[in-house]
Design a protein around this nucleic acid. Structure first.
Lengths: 329, 329
DNA sequence: GTGAAAGCGCTAACAT
DNA sequence: ATGTTAGCGCTTTCAC
């Protein structure tokens, strides 16, 4: 910048004014400075600029998801980036892989960079880390899950009600031996969905066989194995409820390989669900809508909205396609 | 930091030394400073710290993809983030949505933030922007596609050869009326794949009917419509080659809806490809491997490797599953 | 309209 | 082992 000022024969302050396009500068001076900038290929250092600025804003938001490679979080991330870009913000992102240490590390890195806002899919674990990360000019919004009793906005779906609806749907089609396939119990959404399953079963007066409840399924193949085991029991399941998209894929594979006709309702919609045979009945919701809502909430907070904690519950809907309407033989 | 220094009764430099864990400080002093840090809830401003540092590194890398919501780029992003995190770098990301203006804007934002490295899936357009972005302490690597004649490393697959292999595979199964469904001709990969298609057709002495070449398909539904049109011609296609994952999904839908048995080979593998009926034959390659290779190359460059431009070509393989082996009736 | 000086939060280079 | 001074690249404040 000093070089530019020297080349244009002006002070650094004038260069600053020209770059920022504010403050009074004579058109002729603007031209000279612009020319010098061109010639020297000068580009302002945004970090240095922001350091001295009054608003103390970095125009940075951090996004922490379970795993960006998962289509659900990828869709969410796409919406978040879109909202951020529209407002002139840049997105830092990280995948926690459901590891608290890693989450804490990423949170520390982001806050050290003084992000203005934080969008977090919290993994189960100590909630103290969130309190430490938020505050002092850093707003925070939870996405997909809340975290303990932390006083932070959250955008969620009612997985408990939706899972209940899914399981009641299976029960209505004559099933009583219904298997639950879910993610780790450390994850709030997984617990909620299991709760919905239990409630629907209890409502119908069906006792729950512990062998029909598989938890901790983090990958498609483990889900497939768990589903296969349930299909090969002495008294096999006649229906399965799968707790998320990845698990549903595993269940689809297991059912197809078993050859039998077993009912299935999955949580989360996915591409090609309607092209499988049978098409897969799911509890659908919109990851992009979730990202957008969360981003909007976050930017409201960043703009100074200090109203009480808000919890936005997005709708889910049961998409009937065929796999969930198979009756037990 | 001054507050901490005052509270601990030391100079700011001692605080700096304690935070960075280097330089000689008496254990007793360390304790006092650490305590003051705890009490005041002090956290170093990473941006300010890096501004003054000698290496002039921001520990930031930028990732620019077509669309993060697309599973292919999401997988790539996951690998990039993993490699970056391992090395203590943070990832900024953006989706260009194949819009040159948007790409240029994001590149400008990233370079203004002085990212140490840039991983870019370049969209077709002026190549001048890349020259402007790279250089001056910012390394750059292209992923998935090169850009014109810009002297920048690239990690690619040989889409031309792979597409040729796919089309020859269809020809070997007796097809002559083979439709090409591809993305915009502005995209290098799309052009390469079309080239492979043309070459394989020419090799077999099959003239290309322009009506069988559909380009510019950016979404599943447009691809579906284009495929449907080819299936409903007076002399319909007996086989389709789909230029990417999204287009393949559209083609699958079109074929299933048409009810006929039309052969299909798709570019890019996708989840559930083997669970469809018929299972989909594809040209498979690994987005995560691509992200990893690109990140490694980038970090090598950032470490000062100034060897001539490298071009890493990752392998593809034809995964025979059924849809590509259907013979014309 | 423009420039000089001070300072954002921190570290390099030298003191002591 | 610790403190002091200068300065990273920029903007604020205030003087001209």
């Amino acid at each position: 910048m000093r070089d530019v000022a020297a080349a244009a024969g002006v002070g650094v302050m004038t260069v600053s004014r020209v770059i920022n396009g504010d403050g009074p500068v004579r058109p002729e001076t603007v031209r000279r400075v612009t020319l010098a900038i061109e010639n020297l290929g000068y580009r302002r250092n945004d970090m240095a600029s922001r350091l001295r600025r009054a608003d103390q804003s970095t125009a940075l938001v951090g996004l922490l998801v379970d795993d960006i490679a998962n289509p659900f979080y990828a869709g969410l991330a796409g919406a978040v980036e879109e909202e951020a870009r529209r407002r002139g913000y840049t997105v830092l992102f990280g995948s926690t892989k459901e590891d608290s240490d890693r989450e804490q590390e990423l949170l520390a890195v982001f806050t050290a960079r003084r992000v203005d806002g934080l969008l977090v899919v919290p993994c189960g674990g100590e909630t103290e880390v969130y309190r430490a990360a938020a505050g002092e000019g850093t707003s925070m919004v939870f996405v997909d899950r809340p975290a303990g009793d932390v006083d932070v906005d959250a955008v969620l779906v009612d997985g408990r009600a939706a899972a209940g609806q899914a399981v009641r749907h299976l029960i209505a089609h004559g099933h009583r031996r219904i298997g639950y396939l879910g993610d780790s119990a450390t994850i709030w959404t997984a617990r909620q969905r299991l709760l919905g399953y239990r409630e629907a079963m209890a409502e119908a007066g069906i006792g729950i066989d512990p062998a029909l409840v598989a938890q901790g399924l983090r990958r498609m193949y483990t889900a497939e194995a768990a589903a296969t085991a349930m299909l090969r029991m002495d008294t096999p399941v006649t229906a399965l409820f799968a707790g998320n998209d990845v698990i549903t894929l595993g269940a689809v594979r297991a059912i197809r390989r078993s050859g039998g006709s077993v009912a299935l309702v999955g949580f989360d919609d996915f591409v090609l669900a309607d092209e499988l045979d049978p098409p897969v009945t799911v509890i659908a919701h919109d990851p992009a809508a979730m990202g957008e809502a969360a981003a909007q909430l976050l930017f409201d907070r960043m703009r100074g909205d200090d109203s009480p904690r808000r919890e936005i519950v997005l709708p889910t809907r049961l998409v009937v396609r065929g796999s969930g309407e198979i009756r037990p033989c």
